[in-house]
Computed example of a mutant assay.
Amino acid sequence: MARTKHDTAELIMGGPDDHGLLRFLEECPELDHLRIELVEGRIVMRRSGPPFRTCTVALLGSQMERAGWAGLSGQALISGVPGFEPKADLTVTTDEAMQDNCHPYPAERVHLVVEVVEKAVSERDSDYARKRRWYARSRIPLHLLVDLNEGAVELRSQPGDLDYGRADRYRFGEPVPLPEPFSFAVDTRRFRSYASAKA
């Protein structure tokens, strides 16, 4: 008897390898429109975001590229901290560090991760906090959270075993200075809050 995709998924889910299930789901063409992540041992699927969110990620990526960094959109990340394979909206690394085209991408090669907050409240809080703690425990030096609901940016630094030790907040329109090895400020003047949408 031929094995169906449904049967295969059940077999994978019964095993110890959450990453195997993630690979299986990523290969399903029916799910191509979704971003599929592993967050605290559970599979999370998100639809694509609204234009303001997508534009913000693109603006940040182009700023990183102009400054000589590689900006990877939706890149799966992995570290020695189990139960996770998040896909940050933007992962910032160097061209040299990604020459082997490693996937999922090792967190120790990452200098900055960016998350741009969803519009729906139900999708905003818990997953971002869980992912942020994983980024800190995986020792990713900087975490940038862009909140299009609040018109604010939060830069977290000093990663530790529980979370980041420092948080600096900025409003849209203000420059967000990034410490070494970046040594430039993120330009937020073109970021648009969800509230600024015209009916």
Rank of each mutant, 00 (worst) to 15 (best):
M1V: 07
A2P: 13
R3Q: 15
K5G: 07
H6P: 00
D7M: 07
T8W: 07
M13C: 09
D17C: 12
D18E: 14
H19F: 06
L21G: 10
L22N: 11
R23P: 00
F24G: 07
F24V: 12
F24W: 10
L25G: 01
L25K: 05
E26Y: 11
C28M: 09
C28T: 07
C28K: 01
C28I: 08
E30G: 11
H33C: 09
L34Q: 09
R35M: 01
I36K: 02
I36S: 04
I36A: 00
V39F: 02
E40T: 04
G41N: 04
I43H: 02
V44Q: 13
R47Q: 13
R47F: 02
S48G: 09
G49S: 11
G49V: 00
P50N: 14
P51E: 06
F52W: 10
F52N: 14
R53T: 05
T54K: 01
C55S: 11
T56P: 03
T56V: 00
V57Q: 07
V57K: 02
A58H: 05
G61T: 00
G61R: 00
S62D: 10
S62M: 09
Q63R: 02
M64F: 15
E65W: 06
E65S: 07
R66F: 08
W69K: 06
A70C: 05
G71K: 04
L72P: 00
G74H: 02
G74L: 09
Q75R: 13
L77M: 04
I78A: 06
V81I: 15
V81Y: 03
G83D: 05
G83T: 08
F84L: 08
K87M: 07
K87R: 14
L90M: 10
T91V: 15
V92H: 04
V92R: 05
M98L: 15
D100M: 11
N101Q: 14
N101E: 15
C102V: 14
C102M: 10
P106F: 02
E108H: 15
L112Q: 03
L112E: 01
V114A: 01
E115C: 01
V117P: 02
E118D: 15
K119T: 13
A120W: 08
V121K: 14
E123L: 15
R124L: 06
A129S: 12
R130D: 12
R130Q: 12
R133N: 15
Y135C: 14
Y135T: 13
R139V: 11
R139Y: 13
R139L: 13
I140F: 05
I140W: 04
I140H: 05
P141L: 05
P141R: 13
H143G: 12
L144H: 00
L144T: 01
L144M: 03
L145N: 00
D147H: 07
D147M: 08
A152V: 08
A152I: 01
V153P: 01
R156A: 06
S157Y: 09
Q158D: 15
Q158G: 05
G160W: 04
D163P: 08
D163Y: 04
G165N: 07
R166S: 09
Y170R: 08
R171S: 15
G173L: 06
V176E: 06
V176T: 07
P177E: 02
E180D: 10
P181M: 08
F182L: 09
S183F: 05
F184C: 10
A185F: 03
A185C: 12
D187N: 15
R190N: 12
R192M: 12
R192Y: 00
A195M: 08
S196T: 11
S196F: 03
K198E: 13
K198R: 15
